[in-house]
Design a protein around this nucleic acid. Structure first.
Lengths: 213, 213
DNA sequence: CCATCTTTTGACAGTTACTCTCATTTCATG
DNA sequence: CATGAAATGAGAGTAACTGTCAAAAGATGG
């Protein structure tokens, strides 16, 4: 939802012994591919980095890279937290104002992402702002998140989650969050992301504020 | 801005005699490529249509297709109306409420697009909804439109067009309009687009309405 | 521990969008 | 009509993907 999610699976220690060797290897391969990609992208830039180079450094074949990630952009972007966030959204008290629930959950998402790996968070947002292909893919995944928000709105308010109004609301939220991320990256990540988020949600709730002093 | 714009240049009759043979040929080639693409896409679908096929039918070389359009998606999507709409937005009376100006201009855009070629309008919105690559490209071009809206907001209200607030506002508008287009296409273009547009802008202005009866 | 079954992997060939270069053609101009 | 400029076509090249198939590696029952 925020593009800030980290490379490795959230639940780690608990199920490590449970998993067979096969599963453990898969996780390792996945991480190796991502680590190789991050390193190469920081060295050479995104476009200059090819799948073959990634495969080389991760010590797998190019075929394997595509087995793990459908597109090059997904290696950088994939975000496994969305379902968890949705659960958290659902778990909010039913009498809490909707906008507050959204505010809470978005803050949680950002916090989780940064805590996990601030460096990767920033690389991701930077690539989202700078590389059109990455930005597009990001928008696609966030649209999926948007549909989940529609579901949540429907559950909470009894509205039809497929109605134009709910869908428009969700997509305008997605667009706004996307722009906040880009703003953050374009300004060198110097602002406090949490504050940007609050200002973003304020605009959605109350429209453009009065002119500044 | 709306993805509804037509294939041929808005000004047509007036400057025809002025243009040299070279310019006239260029326009013809451009139209030939687009016409070929529309036809092939309707026959076979978007993904099944290759650049080579398009070049064949348009009776040009593949090289020429890429000289005229940077990507395959652009052949379907390119929208020349944005600058005109921006002018119209600027021309609105300064005391008109901002939301009203937006409403007026978006309606004008849709109307212009449909009047020009309803069939192409629908094909475009259908492809935007159905083909991820087209949707992504659409989103990119609409983001550019968003930056223009930032400029216009800045001029009208004296706000900094690069501020987070203005940018977030513009992008949420873009996201909303995008979703309205998708909704329209997904429901087989059976709704009145103008009415969808009004409901969309209502959501942005007043948030989600009370539940339906 | 071994045999067998299943999953994962790598090698390879193929497709397609897109880029670059260069010679040829086509239009503009004096 | 000659000369210069712009547009075109042909062709080679790149890189992201897709699909197939045989080999390798882990799981499993005896």
């Amino acid at each position: 939802m925020t593009g800030m999610t980290a490379a490795h699976s959230p639940a780690s220690a608990a199920d490590r012994p449970r998993l067979g060797l096969r599963e453990r290897k898969k996780i390792k391969t996945r991480e190796a591919i991502r680590a190789a990609t991050y390193a190469l992208v920081e060295e050479q830039g995104y476009d200059a980095t090819t799948i073959d180079q990634i495969a080389d450094r991760a010590e797998v074949s190019p075929s394997t890279v595509f087995r793990y990630f459908p597109t090059k952009e997904d290696i950088v972007l994939t975000d496994e937290y969305d379902p968890l966030l949705l659960d958290e959204l659902r778990a909010r008290p039913a009498d809490e104002p909707w906008t507050e629930s959204i505010r809470y959950v978005t803050h949680r998402a950002v916090q989780a992402g940064i805590e996990e790996d601030a460096r990767v968070s920033r690389l991701r947002s930077r690539l989202t702002a700078e590389v059109p292909a990455v930005r597009s893919r990001m928008m696609e995944t966030m649209s999926v998140t948007g549909r989940m928000i529609c579901q949540a709105v429907g559950e909470r308010t009894g509205r039809d989650p497929d109605s134009l109004e709910v869908r428009v609301y969700a997509m305008s939220l997605i667009g706004a969050l996307m722009e906040a991320t880009m703003y953050w990256a374009e300004h060198g990540h110097q602002d406090d992301y949490a504050e940007l988020l609050d200002r973003t949600l304020d605009v959605l709730e109350h429209g453009l504020p009065a002119e500044k002093p």
